Deep mutational scan, measured.
Amino acid sequence: LRLEVKLGQGCFGEVWMGTWNGTTRVAIKTLKPGTMSPEAFLQEAQVMKKLRHEKLVQLYAVVSEEPIYIVTEYMSKGSLLDFLKGETGKYLRLPQLVDMAAQIASGMAYVERMNYVHRDLRAANILVGENLVCKVADFGLARLIEDNEYTARQGAKFPIKWTAPEAALYGRFTIKSDVWSFGILLTELTTKGRVPYPGMVNREVLDQVERGYRMPCPPECPESLHDLMCQCWRKEPEERPTFEYLQAFL
Rank of each mutant, 00 (worst) to 15 (best):
I175F: 07
E44Y: 00
P216M: 09
D138S: 00
W20G: 13
L185Q: 06
G10V: 02
G78Q: 06
L186P: 01
L84P: 00
G171K: 04
L246N: 08
T19M: 12
L206I: 13
G140D: 01
A45M: 02
I175Y: 15
K85T: 12
F173P: 03
T151Q: 13
S106L: 13
S64Y: 10
P38F: 11
R211N: 04
G18I: 00
D227Y: 14
L250W: 07
V26L: 07
G18C: 09
K176Q: 13
Q58I: 08
V201S: 15
R240W: 03
I104P: 00
L51P: 01
T35F: 06
C217R: 13
P67K: 05
T24S: 13
Q247G: 12
K49G: 05
K176P: 12
G78I: 03
V128L: 06
R113G: 12
E149L: 08
A137P: 01
F12Y: 03
A124R: 03
T163A: 02
Q43D: 08
R25A: 09
T23A: 09
A61I: 05
E39V: 08
F249R: 06
Q58E: 13
A142N: 00
E210N: 09
V117G: 03
C134I: 10
T190R: 00
G155E: 05
I184K: 01
S181I: 01
Y213H: 06
E238N: 10
T163P: 01
T163I: 02
V62H: 05
R122A: 02
Y60V: 14
R214D: 01
Y213G: 05
G22S: 11
F249N: 06
G86N: 08
C232S: 11
G8P: 00
P218N: 07
A142S: 05
L228F: 13
Y69M: 09
R234W: 12
T174S: 12
F182L: 11
P33S: 12
H118F: 04
Q103I: 04
R113N: 12
F12L: 00
P219M: 12
G155V: 03
G129F: 04
E166V: 00
K176I: 05
A164Y: 02
K50D: 13
T24G: 15
V57M: 07
V136A: 04
L94M: 06
L185T: 05
Q43K: 07
P38C: 13
L185V: 08
V26M: 09
L250Q: 06
L250G: 08
W162G: 01
E238M: 10
K55Q: 12
V71Q: 01
F182Q: 02
K176T: 14
E210A: 13
E238W: 13
H226G: 10
L94T: 06
M114N: 09
V71S: 04
S106G: 10
I160A: 07
Q154S: 08
R113K: 11
K49C: 04
F83S: 08
T35G: 11
P38K: 11
K192V: 07
Y110P: 01
E239I: 12
E236P: 11
A168K: 04
S177R: 01
L59H: 01
L51Y: 03
S37P: 08
V133T: 11
W233D: 05
Y110K: 09
E130M: 12
C232A: 08
G140W: 02
G10F: 01
V63K: 06
Q154H: 10
